[in-house]
């Protein structure tokens, strides 16, 4: 295992990933920090920077499961979904690759500093931009193209339209990478993009079985490994069922259940403690399938 070693992998080198050649403009040089042997086909997990509790939970569930089954998780270290995916891979003891829109030695976004340090130590941070290049507006769509190129399959967890995540899906289609999408509420702006991808032909990931089948089809998983475990918790109370359909404000939940707000507050506070429900940044409560905390 390497630690923070810098490598420049050129087109034609043995380590240069063949799958990148499917891109219209494959990068000439890949600037890597970490273990360059991780430049193998993997599962790219991308999604909205403005992720909902639903998005972060799906990320943890799906990226975590794939990672436990030996699939490298590729993402962009961006705030929100990307970081959730990297963290899920780290927590499940898998391997993960961050593709940056700046030099591989630059900490961007600043909130990812600690995460990137970890990745440079034991995993891989890669960029086509020379050392020290600062991030710029146009570098991110280019970065998205490399994510799409490196991966054997692209999993879109949440995306609004139009968005950077959506552009990654476009690159994936051009490169012939299979696109998988997590369906979401038709009322949630963060799921509009994924629902649209599904309408346009992306594979639906409605449970772990779906993911296993798709990963096997892309050659990331041998069929023998498909021992799928079910969710830790299904919604059992009325409150959970209501919140599972979409995040809600406390007062709306109380109105839906037809109980006083205080009673709904008690129920939700208890579910929060059980880890079944979480309050998002916008103050809404969401059902998070009892998979545990953040």
């Amino acid at each position: 295992m390497s630690s923070s070693i810098r490598t420049e992998v050129r087109r034609g080198d043995a380590l240069y990933p063949a799958q990148l050649l499917r891109l219209e403009r494959p990068p000439e040089v890949l600037y890597c920090i970490g273990d360059p042997s991780l430049l193998v086909p993997g599962l790219a997990v991308v999604g909205s920077r403005r992720q909902t509790p639903y998005g972060s939970q799906c990320c943890a569930l799906l990226a975590g499961w794939a990672s436990r089954h030996g699939v490298a998780i590729i993402s962009g270290a961006a705030v929100g979904c990307d970081q959730s995916a990297h963290r899920a891979a780290l927590e499940s003891g898998g391997r993960t690759v961050a593709v940056l829109g700046c030099g591989a030695d630059v900490d961007y976004p600043p909130s990812a500093r600690g995460l990137l340090e970890d990745l440079r130590q034991d995993h891989l941070v890669v960029s086509e931009l020379p050392w020290g290049t600062p991030p710029a507006r146009w570098t991110f769509p280019e970065r998205n193209r490399i994510i799409a190129g490196l991966a054997a399959a692209l999993l879109v967890v949440e995306a609004s339209v139009p968005s950077g995540t959506f552009s990654t899906a476009d690159h994936a289609l051009q490169a012939g990478t299979e696109v998988l999408a997590v369906p979401g509420s038709i009322l949630s702006p963060q799921s509009r993009g994924t629902n649209q991808l599904i309408r346009d032909g992306a594979s639906v990931i409605a449970d772990l079985d779906d993911l296993a089948v798709c990963l096997a089809r892309c050659g990331l998983l041998s069929t023998a490994e498909q021992d799928v475990q079910t969710h830790a918790r299904d919604p059992s109370t009325d409150a959970e069922r209501a919140l599972a359909a979409g995040p809600m404000l406390l007062e709306d939940l109380a109105a839906h259940l037809g109980v006083p707000v205080q009673e709904a507050a008690h129920a939700v506070a208890r579910l929060e403690l059980e880890g079944a429900v979480r309050r998002g940044m916008d103050g809404r409560y969401a059902f998070v399938a009892g998979l545990g905390g953040r």
């Binding site: 920077r49 403005r50 992720q51 705030v79 929100g80 976004p109 909130s111 702006p189 404000l249 709306d252 998002g280 940044m281 916008d282 103050g283 809404r284």
Partner: peptide, 19 residues
């Protein structure tokens, strides 16, 4: 709740990011 003011609002969408 956020700089634009509308995070979690029932009618208006919020235009702020997490950070």
């Amino acid at each position: 709740p956020c700089p634009c003011g509308f995070a979690g609002d029932r009618q208006r969408p919020c235009s702020c990011t997490g950070p």
